[in-house]
Each structure stands twice: as structure tokens, then as C-alpha cells.
Design a binder for these strands. Structure first.
Lengths: 191, 191
DNA sequence: CATAAATCTTAAACTAAGTCAATCTCATTT
DNA sequence: AAATGAGATTGACTTAGTTTAAGATTTATG
């Protein structure tokens, strides 16, 4: 289980034995249960999470108190409220488990030390963040283009597994529409 | 002028004299004119651009051929079609100058070499990208929250300079509404 | 300076999406 | 098996935003 994060890192950079060992020790395993918060505003996000098993959602509450999904993270993805984690400001975004599962956690001070000791990790995270930026831009584009029907179908294509694992209303929230409207979109799109 | 990128980098990491010199040589100065393309699909984005003076917009054309702004970059910001630049895929996003100005450019092969030679730069770019992710998330949140009136006022607060430098229809595009609707929003918001 | 070109505003008719409330489905508990 | 309750669907109605088109105002150019 703890190796999965090494596998992920080694996709982009080649750590030595000693470095891999060092990384392994920096993480702690954490079991999470459905509906459990991993980050809960206004607490500061203490850890970055790497999902080994399960599925997380990042969201915020709008002025009406409605949950609005910003991102999902399934197996082998990272997630936290990055802003809070980096700056130790109060968090604004919830991170919540949608399924029972297991994550690896690392505290900021530990990660900072790791980044100092293992320069290769800066490369890994630079690449990780690069890819995140590209993905977020794609997401923004999809929302701006805002033909919900296409947007929904694109989402299905891109995350076929999530469609079945995540409640419909979370997907609606992620797409930026109401569950009712998504229901209509579905019924006319899927026939 | 070319020092401005060093100033920017030194906000986050401390380069030695030699490293600074090395960085300086890697960039080329480029004068740009209003309406000039810096990236034009489907050409591959050859360079990353650092704005010394002027203002750039990144946008794409939707199915109707309408321009939709993804981001602006004024002084001391970076901009390119990151996906294309990183992967050498065809670019999808235009980068266009909104004003006459001056940018520093760096080619991908040169940047890659620089990142190998100067490990500190990986830290700089990791931090740069971290901040970009945080900013993009904020932007996504604003679009999802979608009370255009507030969204517009927030934009004015955050980029008071841009309001006056950038045509209204680009701002409308950035906010995800038509220029006509923004005009209405303005007239009722600003009184 | 004059005229053209580009940008901004206003308004009416229309459409996509939201709201609210009732009903339906189906998994879980009793 | 009945009862519960969370989630999904459907229908009637409202609202935010688009479209189109016209006029107003600013900016660029011969």
C-alpha cells in the first residue's frame, strides 16, 4: 500500500534505494470512512493526502450553503486544500471521503524537509503541478464552453469509473448545474 | 529589462551570480505589438513568455468561433499554452498581445537544460506552479458561484489595473458572459 | 479635422437553466 | 414484510443570460 506512492513518483523521477526508503518513512497510513472529513474549514489543512483506495471530493459551500465540487481524487491522486496547506491559512475547501478507503498522509514540515533532502522530489512535484495546471485549464474550458450535454458526456468519457462510484448530485455539482437539471440532461443525452 | 525575470525568481529562491548570469543568457528579448500572436493554434508553443511590459490574453475559440478568455498576463507574469509547450502537442489556446510591449522568451530545450543545471530553478517553478494552481482554483470557484454581479466586482478589486487596460468584451469573455450582459451588470453594480 | 472603425450601451424577444414541490426508486433498518 | 430515508426523476413556473439589432461613444487613421 505505501509502495503505491513510490510507484507514482517513480513514473516521473528515479529515486535511489535510500531516497525511496526516506520517502516511505515520511508518510503515514490512514484509514478513512465514508463521509469523513480530511480537511474541514476553518481548520488549517495539516496534510497532503495520497489516495491508495477510495475516493475523495474537494468542495466549498456557496452563499446558500450548497456544496460545490471542485475536484475528485480516486486511487493514486493527491488531494488537500493546497492553499491552506502551503500557507497555513484557514482552509476554505472541504475534503471529504465518499467511500471507505485508505490514504497516505504527509505533514507540511515533513514534506518541506523531504523536498530539501531530495532535490529530485522538486522535479516530481513541479511535473505534478504542471499537469494539474493543464488539467484545471481543461476543466475551466469545459465549464466556460458550457453546453452541459457535451460537458456531461465528456465527463463520462474521462472518468467512466467515477460515474458509478459517485452520487449523481456530486457530479451535477462538479459540472456546475443542479441535480434536477443533470437528470434532464441525462435522460435526453443517453438515448 | 532582462533583470526583471531575475528579480521575480529571486523572490522565491537565491541564485548565485553565476546562476543568475546563466539564466539571463537563456532568455531573449522580444518586442510585441498589439494584436500580435505569441501562440497561434495549431502551431506548437515554442516558448514560455515572461511579460516585461504590456498585457497578454490566453483564449480559445468555442464551437461558434467566439473567443473565450482563460487568463490575462500583465507585467512580471508568465504565459504560454503550457500543455503544448510541455508536450509539443499542437496548441489549442491562442496567446495574443493586447498592447504593444516587451516579453522575455525561452525555448523549451533551453529551459529544460536550465532546470537540469540549476536545481534551485525546479524549486522556483514548483512554487510558481503551486501558486498558479491556487489562483486557478479561486477562478473556478468564482465561475461556479456565478453571481455575475459579485464576480465582476471581485474581478475589479483583484485586477484594478486590467479594468482600464483591457477592452470590456475581453473581461466579459473572462467572466463567462456576453459583453451585452456585462454592460447591464456594470450599470446596475456601479451606482 | 473628419470620417471610419471599434467598442459600449440599451432594449425587446427568446432560451437555457434554476427553483420548488410532488412523486418514484431502491437500499437499509426494524 | 413494512417502514424509512436518501437519492433520482418529473412537471409547472421563474429567472439569468443570450440573441439580435439599433443607437451612442470612444479611438484610430487618412
Amino acid at each position: 500500500m505505501i509502495e503505491s506512492v513510490l510507484t507514482e513518483i517513480n513514473k516521473h523521477v528515479s529515486l535511489s534505494e535510500a531516497e525511496a526508503e526516506r520517502v516511505t518513512q515520511a508518510f503515514k497510513v490512514k484509514k478513512v470512512r465514508r463521509n469523513q472529513f480530511l480537511v474541514q474549514p476553518p481548520d488549517v489543512a495539516q496534510q497532503e493526502h495520497f489516495v491508495v483506495k477510495g475516493c475523495l471530493v474537494e468542495y466549498y459551500l456557496d452563499d446558500n450553503g450548497t456544496q460545490r465540487a471542485l475536484a475528485f481524487a480516486a486511487e493514486n491522486s493527491w488531494m488537500t486544500d493546497l492553499q491552506s496547506f502551503l500557507t497555513t491559512e484557514d482552509s476554505k475547501y472541504y475534503v471529504e471521503a465518499l467511500e471507505d478507503g485508505e490514504v497516505l498522509t504527509i505533514r507540511k514540515d515533513v514534506l518541506d524537509k523531504l523536498l530539501l533532502d531530495i532535490p529530485l522530489l522538486n522535479i516530481y512535484f513541479r511535473i505534478l503541478y504542471q499537469n494539474a495546471i493543464v488539467a484545471q485549464k481543461e476543466r475551466l474550458l469545459n465549464i466556460l464552453s458550457s453546453k452541459t450535454d457535451e460537458h456531461y458526456l465528456k465527463f463520462r468519457q474521462k472518468y467512466p469509473h467515477l460515474e458509478n462510484r459517485v452520487p449523481q448530485y456530486w457530479i451535477a455539482s462538479y459540472l456546475g448545474v443542479t441535480p434536477e437539471f443533470l437528470s434532464r440532461v441525462k435522460s435526453r443525452s443517453l438515448r
